[in-house]
Nucleic acid binder design. Structure first.
Lengths: 225, 225
DNA sequence: GATGATATGTCGGCTATATTACAGTTCTAC
DNA sequence: GTAGAACTGTAATATAGCCGACATATCATC
């Protein structure tokens, strides 16, 4: 039954739709499975063999710690996203961990080497995966050029817009987003200081563009953003 | 003879080493080949079918033009690098062109769709290619975090160091780099204004860290950088 | 519901860097 | 060689957003 659960979790992911039942089973044999609660920290780098993870439930943030001990958010991972050694090259030096943002999460994982073998045996999966990595690259390129040419306000707008599009629930022309991020998180994602983010969010609230609370963010008129 | 030339140009690239003679020939049949001179502009986006390009000789820069007509450097491509629709997803809206920086360049190209077919038939090439795209992604991630956490001076240092490592010729502990970039180019690469770049370069020259000219940059003591 | 921890709000000074502006220099092409 | 274009040098001014400092609000836990 537990085995079955893992099986479906993988089967469910769009990337794996091209696989046969047998192939999925094969990957599932070596699949790990893990649950965790809000606030928990999950280390997933050096210690073990390199792995690829699939977040099946909840939200996590990937945090990197640099030489000086500063923590920066590398990524926000949502239900259905893959994370870990996506480039299929283990990098040793990276000092990253994942922190659970939602009430609870479920994560499957499999060894990078096993995944590689699967790709070798399944060319059309390999092609899909290549495109998937390419898409990730495009996203980063996009954030990069935003950071170069747009100011903090514009980046915040863009971030809220993207977030709303991905996760917001539309009610008439309002959009409600479940807010699992702190203002500090948001600040880091759009690459600015906490104070600036706070200031901008309050400004938007005064303008009537959004209603902000720790639980949810309501964009009052999505057409205006 | 001309056909043979194209053949070898591809054969030469490390990505294609895993391919058989037959497979290369197959891709070569549809290979395009082009030469261009310094200053020439090569458009490679919308007009034609999406392609992947391989720069066999020389240097070019990829320039993007935004809505307001501002030009920004997206990438510097060197001998042996691939460019174009590397993500295997044609994006329509991108308004990019390539400008030749070196005296002359040689470029081969093949259709994205043909390349896709080749990947489908050759899983180990697909795997290598994924890793290659992953590496590109890592590079961008790296520039991104540099831009977030390092000032212009540090970014210039890092850029010169990388450039020296990639292309510099070491003579004792001096490193000589052939300088095919203008200060404006350098400024754009490290994401700062031309004036700041000029100022920093002059500062480094006064310090005796580098000797700058339009033809070459000499790093006087590589161990100090 | 008291206590500590974490998150948010607010303010003013400071600094790196953009911007504007113009002069001098080097290259390119006739 | 000369004109024009492109590149480089320099300086003054403007400003976005960082940073420190502290107050207040909200949450988690006993």
């Amino acid at each position: 039954m537990y085995e079955d659960l893992k099986y479906w979790y993988l089967r469910d992911h769009k990337l794996f739709r091209t696989l046969s039942f047998g192939q999925i089973k094969q990957l599932c044999i070596i699949t790990g499975f893990k649950k965790a609660q809000k606030g928990e920290i999950i280390y997933f780098s050096a210690s073990d063999l390199p792995r690829i993870f699939l977040l099946k439930k909840g939200n996590i943030k990937i945090v990197a710690v640099d030489e000086d001990g500063n923590e920066t958010i590398k990524d926000i991972i949502q239900k259905g996203d893959l994370f870990g050694e996506l480039t299929l090259e283990a990098d040793i030096q990276s000092n990253e961990y994942a922190k659970v943002l939602s009430d609870d999460v479920a994560i499957c994982s499999f060894l990078m080497s096993d995944f590689e073998n699967l790709l070798l045996r399944n060319p059309s999966l390999a092609l899909s995966y290549t495109k998937f990595v390419g898409l990730k690259m495009k996203r980063i390129k996009n954030s990069y050029s935003n950071l170069i040419s747009k100011d903090a306000k514009t980046r915040l707008f863009q971030f809220l817009k993207d977030w709303a599009e991905k996760e917001g629930k539309q009610v008439e022309n309002k959009v409600v987003i479940e807010n699992y991020l702190t203002q500090n998180d948001i600040a880091q994602i759009i690459c600015t200081s906490r104070q600036t983010a706070t200031h901008l969010l309050n400004e938007m609230e005064t303008n009537g563009t959004i209603v902000y609370s720790r639980k949810e963010i309501i964009i009052t008129d999505i057409s205006k953003i």
